[in-house]
Computed example of a mutant assay.
Amino acid sequence: MYKQLSSGVKISITRSISTSFESYLASIGWDEEQFSIEDFVASWQKYFTESAAWFDKVPQEVLESTEFHEEIAKKIDEVIAKILNEEPTEKQIESIEEMQKQLGTNYTYGCKAEAAYVEQLLKEKLN
């Protein structure tokens, strides 16, 4: 069922997962011990029902389909894996290292999205 959706809707679904995942992780300070897949899915559902353009474009019978839910669960896994495996950029690493020297901090980060979170956190501390 997912594969039958237009490419625009599929891109929008992927974007909503990414946005929600990164937002959820920021809300828990990227603390792995606080992570709950159930809480993330709940926040994603809230996001797509209130903010995502794709939700109104998918027929109700598709939204209620078990097959669609299984395909979406796989898509969520794929998107999360992609986010967590994307390396921080050299620019991010340099920026974070410089700010950490100034602030005397030692934040760690394992992926590009987490580096963006840490970079923003450090910028806020500097201001």
Rank of each mutant, 00 (worst) to 15 (best):
T49C: 13
K57L: 14
K57Y: 13
S65T: 08
L63H: 10
P59S: 15
E61W: 09
F40S: 00
F40Q: 04
K46M: 09
W54T: 10
Y47D: 02
L63P: 01
A42Y: 06
H69N: 06
D56G: 12
L63M: 07
V62W: 05
E67R: 05
L63R: 04
Y47N: 13
L63V: 08
Y47E: 10
D39K: 04
L63I: 04
A42G: 13
F55S: 01
P59N: 15
V58D: 07
Y47W: 15
L63W: 07
W54Y: 06
E64H: 15
T66R: 14
F68W: 00
W54P: 00
S65A: 10
E64K: 13
E64W: 10
H69P: 02
E70F: 00
V41N: 12
T49D: 11
K46Y: 08
H69W: 02
V41L: 12
K57G: 10
F48V: 01
A52K: 13
S65H: 10
S51T: 06
V58F: 08
F68S: 05
D56R: 08
W44C: 01
F55D: 01
S43V: 13
W54Q: 02
V41I: 13
P59A: 14
K46D: 02
V62P: 00
E67D: 12
K57H: 15
K46T: 06
F68Q: 06
P59I: 11
T66C: 10
E50S: 07
E50G: 04
F68C: 03
E70Y: 03
W54E: 05
T66L: 08
F55K: 01
L63S: 01
S43I: 09
Y47S: 11
F55V: 00
H69R: 09
A42N: 13
D39M: 08
A53E: 15
W54M: 05
A52C: 15
E64I: 14
Y47C: 08
H69S: 04
K46H: 10
A52M: 15
E61I: 07
W44Y: 04
F48H: 10
K57P: 06
W44D: 00
T49P: 02
A42S: 12
H69T: 01
V41H: 09
D56M: 11
D56C: 11
Q45V: 03
F40T: 02
S43F: 14
S43K: 12
V58Y: 01
F68P: 03
W44F: 06
S65K: 08
D56Q: 12
H69C: 09
S43A: 14
S51D: 04
A52Q: 12
V58W: 01
